[in-house]
Amino acid sequence: MRSNSWNVLSGNGNPATILASDFPATGRTVAGFGDLVARLGTTADAWETAPPPTGSEAAMSGADYLARWLPDTTGGPVRTVLGFCVGSVFAAGLAAEIARHQDEPPRLVLFDPERPDADLLHRHYHELVGGLAPLLSAPEIDEARQAGKRARHEHDGMRPLAAALCGLFREYGEPAFRRTGLDAERGAEVVATFASFLGYLVAAADLDPRPQWAGATALSSATPHSGLNPLPPEERAGLVAREISFDLPHTELLRDDEVARTVAQLLA
């Protein structure tokens, strides 16, 4: 295992039988695969994708991400690939490539699978700005959000839009961080993490996961704008082989015991 490409969630670091695709980050409040795997009670070796070094993601394509993560599977077959949100796009790419090198393709299990677009980039910026509400005045928050809306209308391409939104978050976020006494280095780290996340979303847009999603099982939350939920019924029905829905918010999907029991049954 390349230690800077994967995080070990369970097992002893042997060749993984379970791979999980997500964007883990320090301070994240959305449940992650660490929460899910802890509830599975599995002794299998499970790895989770690690983001590339901060600053390198701006020029990376979807294929570059896959090349970074593709593991050495010679020690044993990968049985399952999991994907969360946009990580489900990369999970499809990993599953397709792994299937070329072993006798049986891995099963693919997705959680609120979503393909990124420019509106998603803007939504994440909008939500992040909202998180600055305790640090900025209401007029400042409104100004930051209006600037984000203008950027969304001015940039058709996802990569230029990501660069513009990162610049805006730096412009409005760093003064907010200073008001809390956060030093400049830590403030820059927060901005860099956002830039890395947007780079991850932009790269995922290079990939078409639909051929692999067609054979996958999707576990869906009840959050209206997440995963398959915003799609028209006819498109949603044909996108995956099976969908299992839960009355849970997107943020808690990987932290729920019922979801863990369902996943354990799928893995068995």
Rank of each mutant, 00 (worst) to 15 (best):
R2C: 00
R2K: 10
W6T: 01
W6I: 01
G11R: 00
P15A: 01
A16R: 00
L19C: 00
L19M: 02
A20N: 08
S21N: 04
P24L: 04
A31D: 12
A31V: 15
V37W: 11
L40K: 10
T43A: 14
W47C: 02
S56W: 06
E57Q: 13
A58Y: 11
A58L: 11
S61L: 09
A63E: 13
R68W: 13
P77W: 00
R79Y: 00
T80W: 08
S88M: 10
V89D: 14
F90Y: 15
A92V: 03
A92Y: 06
A95M: 08
A95G: 13
E97C: 03
I98F: 02
A99Y: 05
R100W: 00
Q102W: 01
D103G: 00
R107F: 05
P113V: 01
E114T: 13
A118I: 05
L120H: 07
L121W: 06
E127M: 07
L132Q: 03
A133E: 15
L135Q: 15
A138D: 08
I141D: 12
I141F: 10
A144R: 13
R145E: 11
A147D: 14
G148E: 09
R150K: 09
A151I: 06
H153C: 04
A163E: 14
A164M: 07
C166D: 14
G167A: 15
F169E: 10
R170F: 03
E171C: 11
R179I: 05
E185F: 02
V190I: 05
V191Q: 03
F194S: 12
A195F: 05
L198Q: 14
G199D: 12
V202H: 15
A204M: 07
D206K: 13
D206S: 13
L207E: 09
D208E: 11
W213S: 05
T217Y: 07
L219A: 08
S220C: 07
H225S: 06
L228R: 10
N229P: 05
P232S: 04
E235F: 01
L239M: 14
V240G: 07
A241V: 06
R242A: 10
I244C: 09
S245G: 14
S245M: 12
L248A: 10
P249F: 09
P249N: 08
D256R: 14
D256A: 14
R261L: 11
A264S: 15
Q265I: 02
L267V: 03
